[in-house]
């Protein structure tokens, strides 16, 4: 889904210890790559005694994937402290997020999600995000680029989260409690209730988030 330059597995030191970041590729390829990195000559010395955390990026690990991961790491004598989706901390003020995204927006392909996002599920991506399905109340999408939802958008979306005010949010039905684009936040007026209005798109005009019919 991303460019080839995107590593399947990235190992780097952080203040808290060693962070293993998993890329977005095929799960089996990722496991194989992780295995390869763990069996490198100096790996044992590198990982020994370190506090290891795993960042799972855009994926949700299923129970069996989690077990596979833990078995693989356990086989190399590594006990995992934290297995978490990328940056699990609570939402912060829009601009403060920017440093999480290190790559330029234009270089990154969109992340395609072919299912409904349910309450409590969170997607963070350094490009645009396209959802074929609904985004339910309580779900979150934070994207550096645009967010398009081919379904009903009822959750929280932050487009242009790196500070890009030109980002847009489109949905076949746009009824979120709040919209965030770049550094702007708009709360839904209470009157925006059940009426269906067809596809709509939100963007920033004159420093304010506006919603208009989506005509292509």
């Amino acid at each position: 889904m991303k460019l080839e330059s995107d590593a399947l597995v990235t190992v780097r030191g952080t203040r808290e210890g060693v962070l293993i970041a998993l890329g977005d590729g095929d799960w089996n390829e990722i496991l194989a790559e992780l295995e390869r990195q763990l069996t490198r000559p100096n790996a044992a010395a590198f990982f020994r005694g370190a506090q290891i955390s795993i960042e799972t990026g855009q994926r949700f690990l299923s129970e069996s994937e989690r077990a596979q991961l833990q078995a693989l790491l356990g086989a190399h004598g590594i006990n995992v402290g934290v297995v978490a989706p990328a940056a699990p901390q609570a939402p912060v003020a829009p601009q403060a997020r920017a440093e999480m995204y290190t790559r330029h927006n234009g270089d990154i392909q969109a992340l395609m999600i072919r299912r409904t996002l349910r309450s409590g599920q969170i997607i963070k991506h350094s490009g645009s995000v396209v959802v074929y399905g609904d985004v339910n109340d309580g779900a979150e999408i934070i994207a550096a680029g645009d967010v398009l939802v081919f379904g009903k958008l009822r959750g929280l979306v932050h487009a242009g989260a790196q500070g890009d005010d030109s980002a847009t949010i489109g949905a076949l039905s746009l009824t979120p409690p709040q919209l965030r684009i770049g550094g702007h936040i708009a709360a839904s007026p209470d009157a925006r209730g059940k009426k269906t209005r067809g596809p709509e798109i939100a963007c920033v005009r004159n420093g304010r988030i506006v919603i208009e019919p989506w005509r292509v």
Binding site: E63, S119, Q121, D137
Partner: peptide, 12 residues
Amino acid sequence: RDADRIIGMVES
């Protein structure tokens, strides 16, 4: 909303 969250967890 809570049911939705639980469904997601049952799926995973």
